[in-house]
């Protein structure tokens, strides 16, 4: 079985896994990270997003063999070493922007990814950045508010 040396949350981790395994299963099943969630497996809902070199990428259809030496950041890797929340995490808590919270990983990852490129987005930019992300509880308006809050933190 092939081995992969992955750069996850600022640490090198070796996994032995079949080459076609999507990154999502490696993160969840092998590395016991619960941030990224399984939602659809077909890149339609955003539950499984992770940051790859700072950009939000769907992990449920991305074979582990294609990740290479890229820097992978999951929800668990966003907060500072001292436990201080990332501004986006803080903003989602402040705005109570969730109901069940299952989609929250994707929402936060899309937001961080957008703010990396555009630190001062307008509402339309926010909606565009979150367009892949589905939420069934209808917490969208709070999430938009949370992104607006995050850019000022």
């Amino acid at each position: 079985m092939p081995k992969y040396n992955l750069n996850i949350n600022r640490a090198q981790t070796e996994v032995k896994v079949e080459a076609d395994t999507p990154l999502l299963y490696v993160l969840r099943d092998h590395l016991e990270l619960n941030g990224p969630k399984f939602g659809c497996g077909v890149a339609q809902c955003g539950s499984c997003l992770v940051l790859i070199d700072g950009e939000a990428v769907v992990s449920c259809t991305l074979p582990v063999s294609s990740v290479g030496k890229s820097e992978i950041t999951t929800l668990e890797g966003l907060a500072g070493k001292d436990g201080k929340l990332h501004a986006v995490q803080e903003a989602f808590v402040k705005e109570q922007a969730a109901q069940c919270g299952y989609c929250l990983n994707g929402m936060i990852m899309s937001t961080v990814s957008m703010l990396n490129k555009n630190p001062d987005p307008e509402e339309d930019d926010i909606k565009k950045a979150l367009q892949l992300n589905l939420c069934r509880c209808g917490a969208h308006t709070r999430m938009i508010k949370a992104v607006e809050t995050a850019k000022n933190l």
Binding site: L33, N34, G35, K37, F38, T74, L75, E76, A79, L85, Q89, F92, V93, Q96, A97, A98, G101, Y102, L104, N105, I108
Partner: peptide, 18 residues
């Protein structure tokens, strides 16, 4: 405020899937 939202943003809320 709900305490569980802070756990959610950290990936610490344990869902059935987790």
């Amino acid at each position: 405020p709900r305490e569980d939202i802070k756990k959610m943003v950290l990936g610490e809320q344990v869902y059935i899937q987790d």
